[in-house]
Amino acid sequence: MLSETVLKEIEEIKAKYPSARSALLPALYVAQREFGWQSEKAMQAVAQALNLPEAEVRGTATFYSMYKHKPMGRHLIQLCTNVSCMILGAERLVDFLKNRYGLTQNGTTADGRFSLVIMECIGGCDMAPAMLLNTDFYGDLTEEKIGEILGGYK
């Protein structure tokens, strides 16, 4: 279950809102950070911490696609293949990730280091092709550059 410090963190989030229900989304993020994804245990822990029905917690968690709904690698690559990025070669990057790391859409590398999610536009069209690595932004990508960048994430 959640550690004392994490529970305290959730308590603090709760205090910001008039009702516990309002704290559900941020609390789910905290749990995701701790458990790595929205596992049954993570959602149970949140339900307990906020005293909400488990069904409701799960319903809310599954409504949002940006929560992680299966175990993920240590680092999350979110690569855009929408129009601008596609025209400027994003598909080649997808092939590269597959050949070099064995990464496919929604997949994770065998060593658990990276997971890949293919995105619809991350708002970086001026620097296409672009990606998010965890919360860091990278643009003007080439195969070479992406290889270098990934090397920096162990």
């Binding site: 049954e40 029905p53 069904a55 409701e56 799960r58 319903g59 599954t62 409504f63 949002y64």
Partner: peptide, 30 residues
């Protein structure tokens, strides 16, 4: 929900969503 038993909730979103229990378990375990 209104009567306080809180067993059912939507799972997912859009056309593919469905009504399910907390962990998509059968009712007798929920």
């Amino acid at each position: 929900k209104e009567q306080g038993t809180n067993v059912l909730e939507f799972l997912g979103r859009g056309v593919g969503s469905k009504v399910a229990t907390a962990n998509d378990k059968p009712l007798e375990e929920s």
